Amino acid sequence: MPYTIKTTKNGLIYIKSSGIISIRKPNSIDRAKTEGHPLIINADHISFLSFDTENKVTYFMMNGFQISVKILFDEAEEALQAAKSHIEKIIKA
């Protein structure tokens, strides 16, 4: 089944590459690329979920990276809560 964002029982969040706006670290000129593969995030490594300076829904990671996504804030929050609760769920198909 196709998905944009889904969670696993292991506490991971899978984000399809087409659902990602940017992956970057502030004060850095380089940006990370996904090259067509899904991005896998461990929910325990997410510091908080909010909006970035461009008002895009963004996961702020403990390592300093910011992952901006093309989904609604409620969907991103639902994915984070499901992953932290170790629930397997497709949030947005």
Rank of each mutant, 00 (worst) to 15 (best):
M1V: 06
H37C: 10
E77N: 15
E77K: 14
D52K: 10
F51V: 09
V57Y: 05
A93F: 11
D52T: 07
F51P: 01
G36L: 09
K89L: 06
S68L: 13
Y14M: 03
K6M: 10
P26M: 02
E35V: 05
T4I: 15
V69A: 06
L49W: 12
I87E: 05
M62H: 06
A79N: 11
E75Q: 15
K25W: 05
Y3P: 02
R31T: 15
F65T: 01
N27H: 14
G11I: 12
A93G: 13
V57K: 06
N10C: 07
S22L: 07
E88W: 03
T4P: 00
K56D: 14
T4K: 15
A32V: 12
T34N: 10
K84R: 15
S50L: 08
T58N: 05
K9P: 00
N55E: 15
A79Y: 12
L49Q: 07
G36R: 10
K89A: 01
K89P: 01
L80M: 11
F60G: 03
I41E: 09
K92L: 12
I40Q: 01
I87D: 04
Y3M: 02
I41M: 10
S28K: 11
S50P: 03
K33P: 02
I67D: 14
I13R: 04
N10T: 08
P38I: 03
E88D: 09
Y3R: 04
G64Q: 11
N63E: 14
S18R: 11
I91S: 04
G36A: 10
F48L: 12
L72A: 15
Y14S: 03
R31E: 14
I91P: 04
N27Q: 15
S17M: 04
V69L: 09
L72E: 14
Q81V: 14
I67N: 12
F51T: 11
S17Q: 08
A32N: 11
F65W: 10
D74R: 08
I71R: 00
D30P: 02
S68H: 12
P2N: 09
K6W: 03
K33W: 11
E88A: 14
V57P: 02
E88M: 06
P26Y: 02
A82M: 02
S68F: 12
F60E: 08
L39R: 08
L39A: 07
K84E: 08
S17I: 05
T8Y: 06
N27Y: 15
K9T: 10
K56A: 13
E88I: 05
E88L: 03
K33V: 15
M62V: 03
L12A: 09
T58K: 06
I15Q: 00
L12I: 02
G11L: 12
Y14R: 00
P38H: 10
K70P: 00
A93V: 06
A32G: 08
E35Q: 11
G36N: 07
S28W: 06
P2T: 04
A82W: 00
K25A: 07
R31A: 11
K16V: 00
I23S: 03
T53E: 09
Y3T: 04
I5K: 07
I67Y: 11
A43C: 13
I90T: 13
A43Y: 13
S22P: 01
T8I: 06
V69F: 07
E54G: 11
F73L: 12
I46C: 05
P2W: 02
I87L: 09
K84Y: 04
I23T: 07
I46F: 11
V69S: 05
Q66P: 07
Y14A: 01
I87A: 03
I91V: 14
I71Y: 00
M61H: 06
I46S: 04
M61A: 04
